[in-house]
Amino acid sequence: MEFSAPGIVSYYTGPGQFLEILLDNKWSFTVRRPMSIANVEEKHITIIYKIFGQGTTLLAERKIGEILDILGPIGNVFSGWQGNFVPILVGGGVGLAPILNLFKECQKHQIHSKLIIGAKTGREHFMDHEPSNGIFLTTDDGTLGNSGTVMPSLKKVCADIDNPMVFACGPLPMLKSMQDFVIQNKIPAQLSVESYMGCGTGLCQGCAIKRRNVKEMAHSYHERYSLVCMDGPVYSASEVCFD
Rank of each mutant, 00 (worst) to 15 (best):
M1E: 02
E2N: 07
F3I: 01
A5P: 01
V9T: 04
Y11C: 11
G14R: 08
L19E: 01
D24C: 08
W27G: 10
W27V: 11
F29S: 06
F29E: 09
R33T: 12
S36K: 03
N39Q: 13
N39W: 12
V40A: 05
V40T: 02
Y49W: 10
Y49M: 10
G53W: 09
Q54D: 12
Q54T: 03
T57K: 13
T57Q: 10
L58E: 03
L59M: 13
L59G: 01
A60C: 07
R62P: 09
K63M: 14
K63H: 12
I70N: 10
G72M: 06
G72H: 08
I74N: 00
I74W: 02
I74Q: 04
F78L: 05
S79P: 03
W81F: 13
G83Y: 15
G83Q: 15
P87L: 12
P87Y: 09
I88C: 08
V90D: 06
G91I: 04
G95H: 03
L96C: 03
L96P: 05
A97N: 05
P98Y: 10
L102A: 07
F103I: 04
E105C: 05
E105I: 05
C106D: 06
Q107M: 13
H109A: 05
H112Q: 13
S113C: 15
S113T: 08
K114P: 07
L115K: 09
I116W: 05
I116L: 11
G118V: 00
K120A: 07
G122H: 06
G122A: 04
R123T: 03
E124T: 02
H125S: 00
M127C: 12
D128M: 15
D128E: 15
D128Q: 15
E130V: 14
I135A: 06
I135N: 03
F136M: 08
L137E: 02
D141N: 01
G142T: 04
G145W: 08
G145V: 07
S147A: 09
T149C: 00
V150P: 00
V150G: 01
M151T: 03
M151N: 00
S153Q: 10
S153M: 05
V157M: 10
A159I: 12
D160A: 15
P164C: 09
M165Q: 12
M165D: 06
F167V: 06
C169H: 03
G170L: 04
P171K: 04
M174P: 03
M174C: 01
M174N: 00
L175E: 04
K176Y: 06
K176P: 00
S177L: 03
Q179V: 02
D180W: 09
D180Q: 10
V182C: 04
Q184D: 10
K186V: 09
K186F: 14
K186R: 13
K186G: 00
I187Y: 11
A189W: 11
L191T: 00
S195M: 13
S195N: 12
Y196S: 08
M197A: 11
M197V: 13
G198Q: 07
G198T: 02
C199T: 08
L203M: 14
L203R: 14
Q205H: 14
G206D: 10
G206L: 10
C207I: 03
A208M: 15
A208C: 09
K210E: 11
N213W: 10
E216F: 15
H219M: 14
Y221F: 14
H222K: 15
M230L: 15
D231E: 15
P233S: 07
Y235D: 03
S236C: 14
A237W: 10
E239H: 11
C241S: 15
F242C: 04
D243K: 06
